[in-house]
Amino acid sequence: MSKITKIDIITRPSKVEDLKEAFNEIGITGMTFSHVLGCGQQKGKTEYYRGNKYSIDLLPKSKIEVVVCEVPVEKVVETAKKVLRTGEIGDGKIFIYPVENVIKVRTGEEGVEAL
């Protein structure tokens, strides 16, 4: 069985379309996208509403999940870094996990065939 890897990318919502296009160019057509909230080095921000100060601890982020076996993980990571890097805090994080198995519910196919 081929090695299957899951890659989770947390980034700015404004970068999702660029990342989607770049992934399409390297052969990745399937992905899962979620709106998420999070904080890291940015530690949120303080705003004013009707004269009252309030802090926003969790900032809106986007999470893109892809599972690959034929496209090399290094190519996916390099593409994501190239598209997402601005050099400022908040560019995001990339997490890489091994996948034990994949099962397509509709057909019962397993492994690479299920992708």
Rank of each mutant, 00 (worst) to 15 (best):
L37R: 07
E78L: 12
L59H: 00
T29H: 13
V71F: 10
L37C: 15
L58Y: 15
V68F: 10
I9R: 01
K45H: 14
F23E: 11
V105C: 14
I28P: 03
V112L: 15
K75R: 05
K53R: 15
L84F: 01
Q41F: 14
K15E: 02
V73A: 08
E88R: 09
L59Q: 00
G38R: 04
V66S: 10
I96Q: 03
V73N: 11
G108Q: 10
L37F: 15
E88Y: 06
G92Q: 03
Y49S: 12
G92N: 04
A114I: 02
I103Q: 09
G108E: 08
Q41W: 10
S34H: 13
R50F: 07
S14V: 02
E21G: 10
K6N: 11
E109D: 15
V77I: 12
K81F: 04
G44W: 00
C39A: 14
K81T: 11
E74K: 09
E70R: 14
S62M: 05
V36M: 08
G108F: 06
L84G: 09
N24D: 07
E65S: 13
Q41A: 12
I9S: 00
G90A: 06
I103F: 14
E110Q: 12
F95D: 09
E110W: 08
G30R: 11
R50E: 13
E74C: 03
V68A: 07
E100P: 04
V71S: 07
V83S: 14
